[in-house]
Design a protein around this nucleic acid. Structure first.
Length: 480
RNA sequence: GGCCCCAUCGUCUAGCGGUUAGGACACAGGGUUCUCAUCCCUGUAACCGCGGUUCGAUUCCGCGUGGGGUCACCA
């Protein structure tokens, strides 16, 4: 149990899980799996103001819907629980007392108003805004008296002066910060809850996390965490800060303002979870043979955090679309039918589903394209009759339609091969222009100029409806 | 603005001192074909700049420039 790789993902239930979080989660998951370690899910719900109802459940659900899972965490248990921070308050209180006793932290009684005023002054003086250390030198006794008198307080980290803080990042090597630039971070809030910085260090240590893979946006808080590990006298784990996703245009961190960023929303828009995961894999990392389409198993086998690229990457939706198409085409008809169910309109005649699917499978970019690609298989169609006259006179088209109607009416069997043979024969006999005739039929039968192959489509639509629509075309033309 | 990170085709990357700088997506052209899509072939396209180090820099170092992150009793 001691030399095992243990990774974790620690989301907050403050809203929908971001795709960036899911991508980070995948890396933590894969790394633990690769070395037969454990991947832990921990809920960081220390901000009770921002917490959304159902948030904890939603996190678990979206992870599962992406086909991933955790070894320890909510609903699973484990030897290091509880895995929800709000249930660990006593632990933080206990540990922070250690810091206080060892003069590594101090009580701070400054009001929010005073803090705001200080910050304002600093900004005006063009100085980096940070806590001015007002309460830093209060004696233990003094602090105790004020606490006992019921004064509101927070506990701050006593950041050492003139010290260089160095830590190693798996992707970037050594990163150094100077302690004089680091704020005396609040560790325990006035409501008794820990801040992220306190809780994350205590929990990662107590849960024996060996590798912390998290977003790059955490680099600047890492020195605070290192200071905390040192203050506690704990071993510092290995860090790997994963580059953030940029907007598809490559400008700025991917944000809600520029489109949907929640992990669940991509599934709801018809992206396959395996395509999403594959996309996360190849953003910022490449397999040794450069192959981009790969399974989770292959990824787990090959992934190595130190091979991750250290620059931010654009969330290229065009490439995602390509990958999603690749995965849709890989699906068996049965699987596709199952997956596409939520996207099938209520009006769609379900008995036709299995016949329609092979005709649209290679045309689907997302599962949500189903409705658009299949609307002419049922219901009524409408189009401008003049499109039927492309490259032909009204007389010719009317004749073509009439003869096609007679031909089809006389058919005893209605299968693709029979329809195709008969229509091709007619076209050749009459020496009609192939492109013109077939396109005209396609429009008359579907109302669309881009459809699956004509004969298969006619077969699925059914003889009665096809004849009806050819008649409708004739009627329209005669009215012109 | 301070601090930190980053820098190869439009995008994601391979490269780890000597290469015709490779691949994928996208794009363009062609083939297959009843349209679209799929599939196949071909092509356009990159080492941010300037100094060093070196016999030799895309590769190592410095500076500049550009991009990104972060500066809460939020995570």
């Amino acid at each position: 149990m001691s030399n095992q790789i243990r990774t974790r993902m620690a989301p907050s239930p403050t809203g929908e899980m971001h795709v960036g979080s899911m991508a980070t989660l995948l890396k933590n998951y894969a790394y633990a799996k690769k070395y037969s370690g454990q991947f832990i899910l921990r809920i960081e719900d220390t901000d009770k103001e921002r917490e959304v109802p159902g948030g904890v459940q939603a996190i678990q659900e979206v992870i599962r819907r992406y086909g991933l899972d955790w070894d320890e965490g909510p609903g699973k248990g484990g030897d290091y629980g509880p895995y929800i921070q709000s249930e660990r308050l006593a632990i933080y209180q206990r540990e922070v007392q250690q810091l206080l006793d060892n003069d590594k932290a101090y009580y701070c009684f400054c009001s929010k108003e005073r803090l705001a005023a200080v910050k304002e002054q600093q900004l005006a003086a063009k100085v980096a805004p940070r806590y001015d250390g007002h309460c830093r030198h209060l004696t233990q006794d003094e602090a105790k008296t004020r606490v006992e008198a019921g004064e509101s307080y927070v506990i701050r980290l006593k950041v050492p002066e003139n010290q260089e803080i160095v830590f190693t990042d798996l992707l970037r090597g050594e990163i150094r910060f100077h302690s004089n630039l680091i704020d005396d971070q609040v560790l325990l809030k006035s409501d008794g809850y820990p801040t992220y910085h306190l809780a994350v260090v205590i929990d990662d240590h107590l849960m024996e996390i060996t590798h912390i893979m998290r977003g790059e946006e955490w680099i600047s808080s890492t020195p605070k965490h290192v200071l905390l590990y040192q203050a506690f006298g704990w071993e510092v784990p290995t860090f790997a800060h994963i580059p953030v996703f940029l907007n598809p245009d490559g400008k700025g961190k991917m944000s809600k303002r520029k489109g949907m960023v929640s992990a669940i929303s991509f599934l709801e828009r018809g992206y396959l979870p395996e395509a999403m995961l594959n996309f996360f894999m190849i953003l910022g990392w490449a397999k040794s043979d450069q192959e981009e389409v790969m399974s989770l198993q292959e990824y787990i086998r090959e992934f190595e955090p130190s091979d991750l690229s250290s620059n931010s990457v654009a969330f290229d939706l065009v490439k995602l679309n390509w990958l999603n198409g690749v995965y849709i085409r890989k699906l068996s008809l049965e699987e596709l039918a199952d997956r596409i169910k939520p996207f099938v309109p209520a009006a769609f005649p379900s008995q036709k589903l299995m016949a329609v699917l092979p005709l649209i499978q290679e045309r689907l970019v997302t599962l949500a394209d189903f409705a658009d690609l299949t609307k002419f298989f049922y219901g009524t169609i409408s189009y401008d009759a003049t499109v039927l006259l492309k490259k032909a006179t009204p007389e010719l088209v009317i004749m073509q339609l009439q003869q096609t109607v007679s031909l089809l009416q006389a058919m005893n069997t209605w299968d693709t091969a029979t329809i195709e043979t008969a229509i091709r024969q007619l076209q050749e006999e009459k020496d009609w222009h192939k492109g013109q005739y077939f396109m005209m039929l396609r429009l008359a039968v579907t109302g669309e100029k881009a459809t699956p192959p004509l004969f298969e489509t006619m077969q699925v639509i059914g003889k009665d409806v096809v004849l009806e629509r050819l008649q409708q075309a004739l009627t329209l033309l005669q009215k012109l």
